[in-house]
Amino acid sequence: MPLLEVNNLEVCFGLRSGAVKALRDVSFTLERGERLGVVGESGAGKSVLGFSIINLLSRPGQISSGSVHFEGNDLASLAPGELRSIRGNRISMIFQDPMMTLNPVLTIGVQMVECLLAHRKISKADAKRISLKKLQQVQIPSPEKRLDQYPHELSGGMRQRIVIAIGLLLDPDIIIADEPTTALDVTIQAEIMDLMLNLCEQNNVALILITHDLGVVSQVTQRMLVMYAGRIIEQGPTKEVINDAQHPYTQGLMNALPQMAIPGQKLNQIKGTMPPLQRIPKGCSFNPRCEYVMDVCKQKLPSFTESGNCQVACHMVAESKQDKLLVKEV
């Protein structure tokens, strides 16, 4: 049984102009210790997905249907009290901007101890000892000193290390990291990603890494989901998706990377932009931008086709598979 199983998740935002579906029909699983990447452009719904797993959506957003199974509990329908024992404890979250997630008026030590005491019946001294151990694990120089410091006294990279230490504080089973290195510089990003990778491997923690950086995903994760306009359009082992993308959008995304083009030549661009969620076109939501668009794409929503170890929601891929099958039969 997988550690986390998300089934047909749908998230709605009730706006004055009508309900907007930020996530539609999202299903995936996560095994213990697995690292899963979620990629997509801004507005694709990847952060909403991260939030809705531990039901952190705030009004007007809500899970309108579907389920999130974690160890036999459906997190989507759990009472707030029960959810609290899982949130932060078994599933923790790391956000993009460490300055926004750390409380500026409390010292690092107070914030760490608070988090431990909220979930465990231990003494303050023990909590402090655990905090110190976690700070050592994230390789912060002079960790004893850090406990008495305020967030503003630390650099961006150091703050993100603290946030990771807090995320690991209660030895969770899953860490959801929402763009954990986007606010950081490349050299710091490389260090932090390396650190997260090692910590997840050592502690057998599953990681859901939400990012728009395909390079980071390819280095850290084992499996990945590609999202477009609130849906998963392709999922599979990271290496296969990166090296042999099936969906025209994933292909376009890869080809648009500067390292995929010959220096000095034009980049391969995807025309147009992602539609706003209120105006998602009929049929496949990518059809107005797709260069292989067919009539069926404008009419019918594509379902998932198995292709190798990947699942792709594309009529073209489905047809080419069918053709191959027909050829075999003949």
Partner: peptide, 24 residues
């Protein structure tokens, strides 16, 4: 050299980047 080695690349899954000690 350190800056170059820190770019996440698609090709190989985990290149050895040159670790810089400390911060700017």
């Amino acid at each position: 050299q350190a800056l170059m080695s820190a770019i996440p690349r698609l090709e190989d899954d985990r290149p050895d980047y040159i670790k810089l000690s400390g911060e700017v």
